[in-house]
Design a protein around this nucleic acid. Structure first.
Ligand SMILES: [Zn+2]
Ligand SMILES: [Zn+2]
Ligand SMILES: [Zn+2]
Ligand SMILES: [Zn+2]
Lengths: 151, 151
DNA sequence: CCTAAAATATTATCCTATAACAGTTTCGAA
DNA sequence: TTCGAAACTGTTATAGGATAATATTTTAGG
């Protein structure tokens, strides 16, 4: 197995395929390949990392090709952007959600997505107190993962 | 009063001053002016917005000047970076904290910092379950603020 | 004073992302 | 079956955000 790669959850591609069929979106080569690249990486990938990988499977791709595919999968909940890293990861939840939580290991770069559908109560209370109506949220927790901590 | 500005909490500058004295940091013109600029803005400012403002008070500043000042105040907890906007705001808490929570109005651009010193329990549980040791976190909640919602 | 550390100035460049427009593919209605 | 609109991609250029590298200045302390 190549470093930085793992067997992608085959379901993700299947899911993507049926999602596209169902919603009449086109599962084009750029979209398919970009999803594969992000989905098989063990670490978040920057857009230009993806571009480089994409260059190995389609001819001479340019940034907009990558960014369009990223935008597409992001809008439909298949990938997330890690804001603090300018990088992208595949969603681990298997369904769309308004909020995301990531644990990001500053040692090894691994990202664990935890999945809470609801904003935790203290935070909900806080938005309520400010009469603020949340539409989406993103929590990025930096720290050290179990594997790295044991060294 | 100028649009986009308000009276800065005078305490912030005082606090910054005593903080620098106490820790033997230099409160230089770039640092002072950048903190003033961020602190008097009602909205998050991008680094190049700050650069433009800074150009009105010191001669011909360059990006590294701004970024160094940003880094300084950020490290010492006086300002925060809003990742989803590539922009910076003054801390509203008055003391350093490991975690930040922001409510960001997608209508008017206002940012409200809420202040919880602790990671909420469901999230703490989640990190504990993954034996992940958090060091810092950032939550950005997008939505609509009370003022905008009432239109 | 003189020196070392801290901080700034300057130049150039890198990384990230998007605007604008031309060309292609797809699918359904005429 | 063809043709037209919508969806999508290709290509070029550029905008926007951040930093590397090196030279110079400022400051505090011996
Ligand atoms: Zn997800
Ligand atoms: Zn790790
Ligand atoms: Zn704060
Ligand atoms: Zn608002």
């Amino acid at each position: 197995m190549l470093a930085g790669q793992m067997n992608m959850n085959a379901n993700v591609l299947k899911q993507a395929q049926s999602y596209c069929e169902e919603h009449k979106y086109r599962l084009t080569q750029p979209r398919l390949q970009v999803l594969k690249i992000i989905g098989t990486s063990t670490k978040p990938l920057g857009a230009y990392d993806i571009l480089e990988e994409l260059g190995k499977v389609i001819a001479n791709p340019k940034p907009p090709t990558v960014y369009r595919a990223i935008e597409f999968w992001q809008q439909h909940g298949f990938i997330h952007r890690i804001e603090s890293l300018n990088a992208y990861v595949a969603c681990e939840a298997g369904h769309q959600h308004k909020g995301s939580q990531f644990m990001i290991c500053d040692d090894c770069g691994a990202v664990i997505e935890t999945h809470l559908c609801e904003l935790p109560k203290p935070l909900k209370d806080s938005t309520a107190k400010n009469t603020f109506t949340p539409s989406r949220w993103n929590l990025e927790i930096h720290g050290v993962c179990a594997a790295c901590d044991s060294y």
